[in-house]
Design a protein around this nucleic acid. Structure first.
Lengths: 227, 227
DNA sequence: CTAATAATGTGTACAATATCACATAAAAAT
DNA sequence: ATTTTTATGTGATATTGTACACATTATTAG
């Protein structure tokens, strides 16, 4: 499953890693494991001791917390991006889990190595900080959206998110079950079903199982704002 | 209102600033303004161009987004802590506002100076990263709490937060109105009133206006978990 | 000190969403 | 290919919490 990476000529080098010098790239190659993951594979698990920063080169992942009854999806992310910096650097144990929801190519980087890059390379550190800042702002937006919008608005938001941030195409296969979509927008699978049928009736989207097409982008944005 | 700071011997130096060298402390003193703020003073405002990182030396602040009808309180924070790193470093305009809800002593640090510290001082950068990581995890917890708990559980959480993180005493004056408490836990002022009366009837807390005393800590934790 | 304004408490009606129930369809396992 | 499991759609009902109304109490301004 694991391979030895070739970081120097990596086609998916992170924005931060572009600032690493030759010596540091060498260290990275020695302290990093590459893995190809399939849909459903766990990348890291809530409650488990964490000793790696994960870099997603390619593919789509979900971050989620596992509650007693259901899971809550905190974030859908696409490579290139780092995962679990907060949970690994500031905490001993993972506060959430990560799972591949598509084929994923991921690097598992030793924390101590990652930490040394931050302390020895200010440009690297700065890029990491910017990524953390963006994550925090996205999370804030999610918080605000969850609190101030009704279920219709939140589902519209989720569709717009998948279009804007993940697929960049008006037709895509929803990479989540209805239940998972519910876990993502904080509602039940029944409500997701009902609302998606409403959107179809209103000709805002076209839906065939998981295949979704945005038909009326403006109307969808309106629903996102007004519910 | 603004004074010239004496950073070297500051009694409230941040954990990150302890790693600055003499030259950098000198730069900080030249590119930083100190201000004493009163309850209700705006520290920075949503939508406004941001050119300062704010360091709260002492005092309590609220971070909030202003919606069309009501505000949503994202975070209650106490000094020492940095405010608005995400909104200043990664964005041009503030995504949220900050207000003093108590007497506050704050430093307004020039972004360029702050950025140069990150890039030239790895230990400083690392401490900033740790603070950002902690913020993200707290925000995640807030997200999960909001989604998975009912209003009773969320209000119990808010009381526990004020006890654990802000006052560290079982008796304190709630620094928010009922409306603001509602904005913080995503409910209405009416629901806050009702639930606080319930808690008083159940002898979980004692309440006299804004003065709150936690009477039954265990029961309060139970309500936080089970609603 | 008094008027004006803001904050708070509580009852009732209403609306949004969850829960339950069950039918159907799709996917996975044998 | 057939069975089993998982995912989905939709109606009926229950629950939760919001919205509105109004009385009461603090707080602020003049």
């Amino acid at each position: 499953m694991f391979e030895n990476p070739q970081c120097e000529n990596c086609l998916f080098k992170s924005h931060a890693a572009k600032f690493l010098n030759i010596k540091q790239i060498g260290e990275l190659e020695q302290n990093c494991a590459l893995a190809d993951l399939k849909k459903g594979d766990i990348i890291f698990k809530q409650g488990i001791f964490s000793s790696n920063i994960v870099y997603i080169k390619q593919g789509i992942v979900k971050l989620f917390v596992e509650g007693p009854y259901n899971e809550q999806i905190l974030k859908i992310a696409k490579g290139p991006s780092y995962l679990g910096i907060p949970t690994t650097l500031a905490e001993k144990y993972n506060r959430y889990s990560a799972m591949a929801i598509d084929n994923v190519s991921a690097c598992f980087i030793d924390v101590a190595t990652f930490k040394s890059f931050i302390q020895e390379n200010g440009k690297f550190a700065y890029e990491v900080i910017i990524e953390l800042c963006r994550n925090e702002i996205n999370l804030l937006n999610k918080c605000v959206s969850r609190a101030q919008k009704n279920a219709r608005g939140r589902i519209a938001d989720a569709i717009l998110f998948l279009y804007n941030e993940i697929f960049e195409s008006k037709t895509f296969n929803i990479p989540l079950t209805r239940q998972e979509l519910g876990n993502y927008v904080d509602t039940t699978r029944e409500s997701v079903s009902r609302i998606l049928t409403e959107f179809t009736t209103d000709k805002i989207i076209d839906l065939d199982g998981k295949k979704l097409t945005i038909l009326d982008f403006e109307k969808l944005k309106l629903v996102s704002q007004r519910g």
